[in-house]
């Protein structure tokens, strides 16, 4: 039973890692890098390391995602579509 979970986790990790390097939109890259961290959490739990899994869940999934999102907002990449300026999230409030 463990081996099935392991194989699913491993394939999820590898696919997400491919998306991190080869996806076009940085939204996708951000989501995929958080996905890699989720896969790592599952893998650490399977490897009997609950402390490391909790650290990865708090730091890798949440904190690093927030840091990357803030950076994307600061370097003008925080937009859904590059062709349409009205989709800028910071402007959509007005």
């Amino acid at each position: 039973m463990n081996i099935i979970i392991l194989v699913i986790t491993v394939s999820m990790l590898v696919i997400a890692a491919f998306y991190v390097v080869w996806a076009d939109s940085f939204f996708t890259v951000l989501a995929a890098s958080s996905m890699v961290s989720v896969g790592l959490v599952l893998l650490f739990v399977l490897l009997r390391a609950p402390d490391v899994a909790l650290t990865e869940a708090v730091v890798g999934v949440a904190l690093t995602g927030v840091i990357y999102a803030l950076t994307l907002a600061k370097i003008d990449l925080w937009k859904i579509n590059d062709n349409d300026d009205n989709n800028d999230v910071s402007q959509s409030k007005q």
Partner: peptide, 25 residues
């Protein structure tokens, strides 16, 4: 809770500190 139960359950200063920072942020 995570910080103070670090010697009993999974968790501790690093994880609790990150949650603390997230709470204030």
């Amino acid at each position: 809770y995570i910080i103070l139960h670090g010697h009993l359950t999974p968790g501790g200063g690093f994880q609790g500190g990150a949650v603390l920072a997230a709470a204030f942020f």
